[in-house]
């Protein structure tokens, strides 16, 4: 491959040139080609992906019984206070307090009810509670950055947290991740399992970030960006962001488009 994973030898300009070439290739694709709405597994500007992406095509499988169900989580699994990341350690964490809320829908627009949503994030200074994170920004003793909740009957989730800061990483020299919150989601089928990242509007690091740019279709990429919502913002308390998640379609009521049979 000629490029060493994790070596941090490339410059930002070199990474940007590689991303621009991949983008140009995508824009030249045939008009009959479907838009690429998921990240490319093989995306060399993200150096750690070089040896970690499958080289063979994903193999088509019709989901079987176990894959058509998903683990069930309940109030035994998730306490109501776990959705508030600002009250976990006895003191107020530093930073911009905010609510992030939205709905989890399946590919047919149905709410995903009573299902687990997990998040993790850096603190306001861009530091994670993790040994691997050696960024010399302060750890906030009042902020662990992890939370969980169950969606409501309408598929809604709501977390109270602190706006995370951007942080440096070693993909290339002077590499910085746009501020983000990691989300882990389950659906009603195990085939809907997903992990993603939510970003904030207008981040100047978007164009420079190979993880965000690994989604080649701009409209798909944009869907990872939350919207500021003044209706969520609370007076004298915190700002509010709204972000909805659409999982892949459930197969439970899926009808084969060609022959009308039920999968």
């Amino acid at each position: 491959m000629g490029v060493d994973a994790d070596a941090a030898t490339s410059t930002q300009d070199e990474i940007c040139a590689e991303m621009a070439a991949l983008r140009a290739g995508y824009e030249r694709r045939g008009s009959d080609t479907e838009p690429e709405t998921q990240p490319r597994l093989d995306y060399p500007p993200y150096r750690s992906s070089l040896l970690r992406h499958p080289t063979k095509d994903l193999h088509h499988a019709d989901p079987e019984t176990i894959e058509l169900e998903a683990p069930v989580f309940g109030q035994r699994d998730v306490g109501a206070l776990e959705a508030d990341l600002t009250i976990q350690q006895g003191g107020e964490p530093l930073g911009e307090r905010m609510i992030v809320t939205g709905r989890v829908l399946d590919g047919d627009g149905r709410p995903v009810r009573r299902q687990l949503v997990e998040i993790w994030q850096a603190n306001a200074a861009g530091r994670y509670i993790h040994q691997r994170d050696q960024h010399p920004a302060p750890i906030d003793p009042n902020f662990t950055g992890s939370g969980r909740c169950l969606t409501g009957e309408d598929g809604s989730y709501l977390f109270t947290t602190i706006k995370p800061g951007p942080y440096p990483w070693k993909n290339h020299r002077n590499a910085w991740r746009p501020a983000h919150i990691h989300f882990s989601l389950f659906g009603t089928d195990f085939t809907q399992r997903m992990v993603t990242q939510m970003y904030f509007p207008g981040d100047p690091l978007f164009a420079l970030d190979p993880i965000y740019q690994s989604i080649l279709e701009p409209a798909a990429r944009d869907r990872l960006v939350a919207a500021y919502d003044h209706g969520v913002t609370r007076p004298e308390w915190c700002t509010g962001y709204r972000w909805d998640v659409v999982l892949t379609g459930s197969h439970a009521t899926w009808t084969e488009p060609d022959d009308g049979g039920v999968a």
Binding site: T37, P39, I119, W120, T144, H182, M194, R223, L247, T248
Partner: peptide, 17 residues
């Protein structure tokens, strides 16, 4: 209703998952 794109789990999931 296009599925939301996935993203890497990254290195820092240890306190959460």
């Amino acid at each position: 209703l296009t599925p939301t794109p996935g993203q890497t789990v990254g290195p820092f999931f240890g306190t959460a998952l």
